[in-house]
Design a protein around this nucleic acid. Structure first.
Lengths: 185, 185
DNA sequence: CGCTGTTTTGATTTAATTCAAGCATAGTGG
DNA sequence: CCACTATGCTTGAATTAAATCAAAACAGCG
């Protein structure tokens, strides 16, 4: 197990399980534009995207504890067969989530994206209708394919409409999940 | 093997291999907005995204021949272990490609998207620098998160810049791959 | 040759970005 | 304990890239 808030968590050839904290997976364009493909929280596994050529990076959004599994040792283990089947399942789930995110980035407007994001976060954390955002507006923007200003404006819009309440910038009360769901398109 | 140009190719519980033709995988929003997550051509496998709940659909862009493999029988086979490992690899490759596409949808402008699309198509087909587009502008638009008009304008722009030449709407000569590559990111 | 669906091109509108201040909040040291 | 600073967030005004609306040009195909 590894206790870290350093920059790049990954080495290709490993798969990771998050014990606590939040990790973001992202890719950069040469000029610095960034797209975050996913956030991972306690219990999630990641690292299926890593390979030698492709340069995705994994970074800690908050201080993080992760377990690193060596790819090689997973394949060699006596239970290898069922382990590989589990890994396949996890990767397939990841693929589905990523395709859902494609739909968001390709076809949803700013308000729909933010509404969908909040609902997704609420689903993960299971702390009722109050969510604690671990990441900055800038990270949310890079996840949703928007600018941080637009994200901020959409939060304000949702607040004005009475769908959410903000306690500081990071704690969000979902007041009307019904409506958020409808808005998330 | 299945010879088809009908609408939805998939049943969950199957994985498919394309023998010939082109398949598109897409998701719809309730109001009809569509995002195509991938096109699959001869040799490609697809179906890793399918499950009971999630509604992705696979459709033939051209008349298609595919082989359907029953998930169950793949797992039961005597060579199951290596088969599952192969499926895991394919799914991981799919995940990487999908994340690359997230970067395109979230952060690239229209010209960059179209340039990247053309290069990607060229890489797949390996017919030198001339590519035959199997799909309509509308499908390209839904893949790139644009409107068909914008796609058309970007083709015109690339033509004006001397990066490509069009022979009708569907055959594209890549005249300056170098520049297209630079433009694509 | 005349349809039908596809693609291109043009004019206008709009959603989101960019640029530019201000405002909060938390942390630091006097 | 309170100024002082750094960092992140919000808000406003102006700009812009892409969407929308609208029409013409272009295939294919019966």
């Amino acid at each position: 197990m590894r206790d870290s808030n350093k920059n790049n968590l990954f080495e290709a050839g490993n798969v990771y399980k998050v014990i606590s904290g939040v990790v973001r997976i992202s890719k950069l364009l040469p000029d610095g534009r960034r797209q975050i493909s996913s956030f991972h929280t306690a219990g999630d596994m990641f690292g299926f995207e890593a390979d030698e050529l492709h340069n995705a990076s994994a970074e800690a959004v908050t201080p993080v504890k992760v377990i690193a599994y060596k790819w090689q040792s997973l394949l060699d283990s006596t239970r290898s067969a069922s382990v590989v089947r589990d890994l396949l399942n996890l990767t397939m789930v990841g693929l589905r989530q990523t395709q859902e995110h494609l739909l968001l980035l390709g076809r949803k407007n700013a308000l729909e994206r933010v509404a969908a994001f909040l609902l997704d976060m609420a689903k993960r954390t299971r702390t009722g209708s109050v969510i604690e955002l671990a990441m900055a507006r800038h990270d949310i923007a890079d996840y949703l394919g928007l600018t941080l200003e637009t994200v901020s404006r959409m939060f304000a819009e949702l607040k004005d409409q009475g769908a959410i309440k903000l306690e500081g910038a990071r704690r969000v009360h979902l007041l009307d999940t019904e409506r958020l769901t409808a808005m998330s398109a």
